[in-house]
């Protein structure tokens, strides 16, 4: 569904532009519109990169994964079901590719160092410890934490994306939060 961008002026709100829905952009991009493709890219690039970075903990991998995900998604637009969420579909590609690469690396050259805390990042007090604790989570828990709190997907969408029951997602989130609390010495219920 399309929504509008509204500017609030002293004499009342004025519609200054119409934000096209993902489905509209997908249709246009499928027909070959580079403008629509660029709009989809702008809408999801940062989220996709952040998800890849938060899962893998490495900028170089995130760069590759996010770009690869967009290339694959755009190349497959012809097969994309418009009734589905483009964002969720894109994140599915990002997550699968991230897991693929991490598992392959682990198998080939051993466990790689995850360094989610980046000196160039804008951090607030406590972020560093929290992100380090997230980086130390087991991969499956880290993925659901990133999708739930980083990307903002609801548990059902995460379940669809990971092909697991929603109960499994909730359970992984709960255990991840419990582990984070333990590591950070935080008390309190979910």
């Amino acid at each position: 569904m399309a929504c509008s961008v509204v500017a609030v002026a002293p004499d009342g709100p004025t519609v200054i532009g119409r934000r096209r829905s993902d489905a509209q952009l997908v249709r246009a991009a499928r027909a070959g519109s580079r403008d629509a493709g660029a709009a989809l890219f702008e809408r999801y690039w940062l989220d996709a990169w952040h998800a890849a970075y938060a899962i893998t903990g490495r900028r170089a991998l995130a760069d590759d994964i996010a770009q690869d995900a967009f290339e694959r998604a755009f190349a497959s637009l012809g097969r994309f079901d418009e009734r589905r969420s483009f964002g969720a579909w894109l994140h599915r590609i990002v997550v699968n590719r991230s897991l693929d690469l991490l598992r392959t690396e682990r198998r080939l050259v051993g466990v790689a160092e995850i360094e989610l805390v980046d000196e160039s990042g804008v951090e607030r007090e406590g972020d560093r410890e929290l992100l380090a604790a997230v980086a130390s989570l087991p991969l499956q828990r880290r993925v659901v934490v990133v999708l739930r709190f980083g990307v903002g997907l609801p548990p059902q969408q995460i379940a669809d994306l990971l092909d697991v029951p929603v109960g499994t997602v909730n359970s992984r989130i709960a255990r991840a939060l419990e582990q984070l609390r333990d590591e950070l010495g935080v008390e309190g219920a979910i």
Partner: peptide
């Protein structure tokens, strides 16, 4: 949401940006 969940959302939202 708990404080931890809010903090998580904030910290993950403040991750560095790609070049």
């Amino acid at each position: 949401r708990s404080d931890l969940e809010r903090h998580l959302a904030g910290a993950l939202g403040r991750l560095p940006r790609p070049g």
